Amino acid sequence: MTRSRVLLAAVGAAAVLALALVVSPEFRPVRDTPTVLGVLVLATLIATWPAGKRTLGPVVGAVAVGTLVGVGYWLQNPTIGGGIWSLEQTAVLMVLLALLCRWASPRWVLTVGPAAVVAESLLILQTTGAPVMTGWEAAGACVFWSLAGLVGAGSGLYLRLLDVRRAAAVANARRLQRTRLAADLHDGVAHDVSAMVLQAQAAQVLLGQRAEDVQEVLNRIEADGARALASMQRSIRVLREGEAERPVAQPEYPVVQRVIAEALRNAGKHGDGNGVTLTITNGLPPAAMPRGPGLRYGLSSLADEVTAAGGTFSAGPDGDRWTVRMELPS
């Protein structure tokens, strides 16, 4: 709460009530007290904002009940119409409905909102004065007058919907960041650690019993690398949980990566427009050669991405070689 806001709210409330007294000097308590209550409540909400959000439901409900009671008493002995007092109360309820539907909990919106719209619609009967409209004429007039309250409620609900969409967009952006982080972990570290473990295992096979000291060091390298991969796999699983995996770059050698990139550029420039086919093969290690542990996210990510683009993807042994094949339509 700031002093300037309190001053603004007080001056605004005083100006609104003063205008009503100037236009309609004869103050009638039964008819005009709900308007005074509504103006003061709205001014208090403005002065205490945003703390006033917590009390929106009860205070809007109190204004709606006050309006209904005031109109009900007036209808028992209808005299002069509400005039500017009823018009100001209509405007107050319109603003309060907008605030309610924008900031209050759904429970308060569903319970207080309809009552406030009904109270606002009935003000037309008091506004027109005696004799009071009846029958279909009264029903039509109330429906028409309720448009002000419905506009206020609709404005608040629209702004609330924008908040929901904005929150969803932020959550989606965070999920994408986590997915990209997981892919970056895979690209930047997983292959190197896998190669380290694989080489340590291969060295152990070659060394046999000839170098116990080196064997012990290699054992420690293998164990450390395996633990690092297991820890990274857990981290990536958490980051990617429930997310579509971003395709990650598979080439392990920079020269191969550049050749593939240049070939794709040439295909884009000089291709026949019938799509792109990419085949990469490499020899399989001997059966006795141990395989390093992997994260198993690279190929599955590529398969998902290629399938989503309308293409086909396969990866697996082909005789004594490992073949990765991708076909994309034009």
Rank of each mutant, 00 (worst) to 15 (best):
V41K: 04
G52K: 04
P34E: 04
W49K: 14
A43F: 02
P34V: 01
R28S: 06
L42E: 00
V39W: 05
K53I: 06
V59W: 01
L68I: 09
I46R: 07
G52I: 02
G66W: 00
P50L: 14
L68C: 08
W49I: 07
A47R: 00
L42P: 10
R28C: 05
V30P: 01
T35I: 07
W49D: 03
V59Y: 02
I46Y: 11
V41E: 14
R28L: 08
A51S: 09
D32C: 06
V65L: 15
A62Q: 03
G66F: 01
T67G: 07
G66S: 11
P29K: 00
T33C: 09
L37K: 03
A62M: 14
G66T: 05
A62K: 00
L40M: 13
G38H: 01
L42G: 10
L56H: 09
R31Q: 09
W49Y: 13
R31S: 09
T48K: 04
G61C: 09
V36H: 15
V59M: 15
L42F: 13
V65E: 12
L45E: 00
V65C: 07
L45V: 10
T44R: 15
V39N: 14
R54D: 00
D32T: 03
G38F: 03
A47W: 00
L68R: 14
P29G: 11
W49L: 14
G61L: 06
V39S: 14
A43V: 04
V63G: 11
V36G: 15
T48L: 15
W49Q: 09
G70E: 04
V63M: 15
A62R: 04
G57T: 05
K53M: 08
P58L: 12
P34D: 05
V65N: 06
G57K: 06
T55Y: 15
V36D: 11
A62G: 09
V63N: 06
P29V: 14
P50D: 02
A51Y: 10
T67V: 12
D32H: 05
R28K: 10
I46A: 14
L68F: 14
T44K: 12
R31L: 14
V65T: 10
V71S: 14
L45I: 11
T55Q: 11
T48V: 12
G52Q: 02
G66V: 02
L40R: 08
G38W: 01
A64L: 12
R54N: 04
A64S: 11
T35F: 04
V41W: 02
R28W: 03
A64Q: 03
P29R: 04
K53F: 07
G38V: 05
V65S: 13
V69S: 11
V60K: 05
L68M: 13
T55V: 15
G38R: 00
L56S: 10
T33S: 12
A64R: 03
A64M: 09
R31W: 01
G61W: 01
T33F: 11
V60W: 01
V63W: 00
G61F: 02
V69I: 13
P58T: 03
T67M: 09
L68P: 00
V65K: 09
K53T: 08
G72T: 10
P50C: 14
T35M: 14
T33W: 08
T48M: 15
L40N: 07
G52W: 00
G66P: 05
A51R: 09
V41D: 13
G70R: 01
V30M: 12
T33R: 11
K53C: 09
L68S: 11
T48S: 13
L45M: 12
K53E: 03
